[in-house]
């Protein structure tokens, strides 16, 4: 895992460290539950001075057309993210474990649905 990044969890570190300190509203990541029974999904980000305003802004920016029944916001700098260079070590091991999928096993038709 790479460490959380103050400007944006997705921004390469080198892009943000040289910047002089500016007084900008922090960046928040917005998650919306589209319907009851569904999980929250990342929909985008926005700037706001605090969590209360972040939720108000999220309502205006991301739910103008009934897109949600619940909003989560989290300051972007609190998100830790895996880095693309770790793609191999992280995900390759699961690629060779085909037996984890039900289709790996041949069950005779006579047995019926399983």
């Amino acid at each position: 895992m790479s460490s959380p990044n103050s400007a944006y969890p997705d921004t390469p570190e080198s892009q943000t460290q040289t910047k002089p300190k500016r007084r900008e509203w922090p960046l928040w990541e917005v998650f919306i539950r589209g319907q009851h029974g569904m999980s929250h999904r990342h929909v985008g980000s926005l700037h706001a001075p605090d969590e209360e305003m972040a939720i108000k802004n999220a309502r205006d920016v991301y739910t103008r057309r009934n897109e949600g029944v619940s909003i989560w916001v989290v300051e972007a700098r609190h998100i830790a993210a895996s880095s693309p260079s770790q793609k191999g070590p992280l995900y390759e091991p699961s690629e060779c474990k085909v037996y984890r999928h039900p289709t790996f096993f041949d069950i005779p038709d006579e047995v019926g649905a399983m």
């Binding site: 944006y8 997705d10 921004t11 985008g44 926005l46």
Partner: peptide, 14 residues
């Protein structure tokens, strides 16, 4: 706002 956020991921601020 959507577009500024997209640009910000490239390392520039709004």
């Amino acid at each position: 706002l959507y577009l500024y956020c997209a640009a910000e991921t490239l390392g520039v601020t709004r």
